[in-house]
Amino acid sequence: MVIAFALGLAACGSQPQLSDAVFTTAHRSPGEAARHFFNSHPRPQQPLAFPHKTHIEKKAECTDCHETVERGPVAGIPSVKACMICHSQIATSKPLIKEVTSYSDRGIEIPWQRVYGFYPESHVRFNHAPHIRAKVDCAACHGDVANMTVAERVVDHTMGFCVNCHKQKNASNDCLTCHF
């Protein structure tokens, strides 16, 4: 408990924090514990206003950047390296792209904040790939990101949300399907 208090900094899901010497499941602060308990996800502050809509309008697919969504458990937040595949050539003079280039030049990832995601104590082992193969549309869980500029958390990933869909699609609703 002392350690949990003493560290006192808020942890945010999988985001790296100022480091301490030990990895533990303990919450870093009462605030964090409360947030996790009530499944409250504060609105993320993105370093850059990434316009999803603009990219989809230019005929990019979700899977162009979230590459592993069809193959594995994680969709993946793209590295700045992925941005630069196009933006070393395209729209290089725009201020946002200049910022992206600056990150890339410094060898630093853009500190994107996760929009969705489960807290560790939910013990959910979510796997994207089988959902994509079952023809679940990205928008079913993530909202109409294609028409958003900055991605917002518009769907609440409660267990009820998951279970309803599993019922409709006749997928297993055993606890062990997701929690292990």
Binding site: G8, L9, A10, A11, C12, G13, Q15, P16, Q17, L18, S19, S29, P30, G31, E32, R35, H41, P42, R43, P44, Q45, P47, E67, T68, R71, G72, P73, V74, G76, S79, V80, K81, S104, G107, I108, E109, P111, Q113
Partner: peptide
């Protein structure tokens, strides 16, 4: 510090360097 720190704020996070290798997350 708990009051200062809020989730979704990059300030309290470590810098994330660009990896030298290709990463295929989760596979």
């Amino acid at each position: 510090s708990a009051a200062l720190a809020s989730c979704g704020n990059p300030e309290h996070q470590l810098i994330r360097f660009v990896p030298e290798e290709d990463i295929i997350p989760g596979i």
